[in-house]
Design a protein around this nucleic acid. Sequence first.
DNA 1: CGCTCCCGCCAATTC
DNA 2: GAATTGGCGGGAGCG
Length: 370
Amino acid sequence: MASINDSESKNHPFVYSRKDKSLGVLCSNFLRLYNRQGVDSIGLDNAANQLGVERRRIYDIVNILESVGVLTRRAKNQYTWKGFTAIPHALQDLRVGTYLLTIIFLNNMKQAFNETPKDSQLCTFQNVLNENDCHAPSSSNNSKSSGSSKSENNMKEKSLGLLTQNFIKLFISSTADLISLDTAATALLGDIRDPTAMRTKVRRLYDIANVLTSMDLIEKGSNATSKTLDTNVSKRRAFGTDITNHDDSKRKQIDAMSDWSSKDVTVAMHSNIDFMKVKYNENITTQKQSSRNSKEFVFGPFTPATVPKVGTSGNKMIKRAQDWENMADTYRPQYCNKALTDLFGHYEDAYKSWYVEADEMKVAHRSPES
DNA sequence: CGCTCCCGCCAATTC
DNA sequence: GAATTGGCGGGAGCG
């Protein structure tokens, strides 16, 4: 009781609005309630009461927060508050894992290019994620590899928490500032072409996006003009929605993400910097017209600025696409799901030249450390 | 009408 | 076998 919904409900505080019960505001309230020093333990029951919501909703919030390091499950009904300062570390772990994943992904792409179509759905980000669970435990015994990760804990694989992390990984591996939820959903879907699964996935992503937004880790952008701010630690990206879902041979609407702000300053998000709100925004006035087919910019597959040192001393220079370029337009692997193509479409060229290196690197980084 | 996404049924897990 | 957790998707709200 006392102090619950305050927010900025400008108008009539008594009119019910669906917005007032969104996961986003709930998360805000949750944070407002526990994000103060002195707190270190959180009881679910308590939280539910304080916030005046059903238990179920608390689980949603808590799971997502946990996946980003803000919380940790201590015991039944009991969570430990870690705070925002834990986010950088958590993200760093995700980043490392993602790096490797991307390399593998590139290889898969390569395969797709060379081999026949068959049922190579193996281009799904999710599939890559599955085959090598690069979860980032970050603490204690590294890679104890407890048995097979086959089809066992199927339950956990669809958890909101994991989905959240994978969603973030998508941002990390892509240079796109704008990623539509539909795109993300498709990429994160093991089985493409499953309308039902798709819808569900998108629903979940909406949930996640909302809480991440309330945490200021992400921002909603419009298809027309992306406004991307940037926290000093984490990359602040935006999510949008696919437009023109139907149709195909038209123009792929990567326009959505085609206008990036000035190559945002990919901050390192190193171990521990003061996180929080020191967001410095930069002028975003890049009305990049861009184009769909003749992309002239080639960015590196991985966020150039960062990339944790992995074995090889990060000799990642982007070689410009060569004769591959032509092939790119005409010989677009259509058997790779469209969403991914869109997602990574910017540097499709880069792929061509990259996968060669990726091949080498893959062998190279054979566990020097980490 | 299509995009969002809240609500809560009920299954899986844990006590 | 009760209590916790938490997928999942129907369908309501909003633009």
